[in-house]
């Protein structure tokens, strides 16, 4: 009878110990480390940041995203590449704005290149207007020649 009582107590203690360990297995832990991230800022042509919109980051050739999330209050995407190479960034807002572009980083997360458009905002406007007027100029010449 006494032996049974001891076995029951030991079993109870073991059960409690296992329960405590199991409950700790679900505790979320954290660690802090300094790292060099790639930070990409997304913004509209009037410099309004692309804030709190969804984005996905892909390693080259992979279909499963390396990282997903939302841009921060400054319209930034930041990620820590785990290897050098090309990274595709896809950002989409619910109203159809967005970007889908690729950049290249080395192992230390330094940007080596990106497929960013050549012209910046004001340069774009001037160049675009010049191209449009130039095309209409050619059209005018064509019309005169046809008339002649």
């Amino acid at each position: 009878m006494r032996t049974h009582s001891v076995i029951a107590r030991v079993t109870l203690l073991l059960g409690l110990a296992v329960g405590v360990v199991a409950s700790h297995a679900h505790d979320l832990q954290y660690s802090v480390a300094a790292g060099q991230a790639v930070v990409v800022k997304l913004f509209y042509v009037d410099n309004t940041p692309f804030t709190f919109e969804g984005y996905e980051v892909y390693r080259e050739g992979e279909k499963l995203p390396y990282q997903v999330g939302r841009t921060d209050s400054q319209g930034r995407v930041s990620f820590l590449p785990d290897r050098p190479g090309k990274w595709r960034i896809k950002a989409i807002s619910e109203d159809g704005h967005g970007l889908d572009f690729t950049l290249t980083t080395d192992a230390a997360a330094h940007i080596e290149g990106s497929d960013k458009p050549v012209y910046e905002r004001y340069g774009r406007i001037v160049v675009g207007i010049a191209v449009i007027l130039g095309l209409f100029g050619f059209l005018n010449l064509y019309m005169r020649r046809k008339k002649a």
Partner: peptide
């Protein structure tokens, strides 16, 4: 031509 250029420039005013 002028209004097409204006339309292009307007698209930059977000």
């Amino acid at each position: 031509a002028s209004l097409t250029a204006a339309s292009f420039a307007l698209s930059f005013v977000a």
